[in-house]
Amino acid sequence: MEIAPLREADLDAFVAELWLPAKREMAASMTGYDLDERDGVRETGRSHYRARLDDDETVTYLGREDGDLVGYVSAELRAPAPIFEAIHECHVSDLYVTPEIRRRGAGRALLDAAEEWGRLRDCAHLDLNVDADNEAAVSLYEAAGLTAERYQMQKSLD
């Protein structure tokens, strides 16, 4: 699999082939989240990722297999509250692999690319959030050396 940073020329295909399918899958698996498929949602995605292209504190890598887009990972630099020691963390905000190539190493390769990006920016940690019932993703992340450090707890206010 080829991994390369997202470029302006990739935006339309990225949004249509990876970002929207990833968000649709996420919305289908998360209680209380409905995807807003209004007109302009593609432009919203393009605009968001276009802005990230010029931001040195974020990265999006695309995975390609035989020229086809098959996955992506997005990461950003984060710092703790100013009262704590000034360290950087590499936060993976999105990782998605198309269903037809899952469990063939693409997710790990994309995660490794984000980890290397964070390492080159002197990050002390890599972190991410994962749904507790997403066993495949939890397995991938544990195999990559991530451990659960906190629990995110939620309560509906409806």
Rank of each mutant, 00 (worst) to 15 (best):
A124W: 06
A143W: 05
P99H: 11
E100R: 14
G67R: 09
A28I: 02
L110P: 00
N134P: 07
V92N: 09
A143T: 14
S29V: 07
A79N: 04
D34V: 10
E135F: 05
A137P: 03
T60G: 01
Y49P: 06
I83P: 00
L35S: 11
A113R: 14
A106I: 14
A9N: 13
D56H: 09
D66G: 07
C90A: 15
E85N: 12
T31C: 04
A81E: 08
G32F: 12
A13G: 06
A51N: 15
V73A: 10
R102A: 07
M26S: 09
D34R: 14
V73N: 01
E37W: 12
T31H: 06
V59M: 09
E2H: 12
P21I: 13
D122K: 06
G63E: 12
R64P: 03
G107E: 03
G105N: 03
F14G: 04
D122N: 13
R108T: 12
I3Y: 05
E89T: 15
S93I: 06
L20I: 12
Y61S: 09
E37R: 15
K23W: 14
P82N: 12
Y33Q: 14
R103G: 14
V73D: 03
P82F: 12
D56K: 13
L111N: 03
I87H: 11
D131T: 04
A144S: 01
R121H: 08
L6S: 05
Y61G: 01
A124H: 15
S74L: 01
E57G: 14
V41R: 13
T60L: 02
H91S: 11
D56C: 11
E57T: 13
D10P: 01
D12C: 05
V130N: 10
L126W: 02
R24D: 00
A114M: 05
F14C: 10
S74H: 12
L128V: 03
A51R: 14
L35T: 10
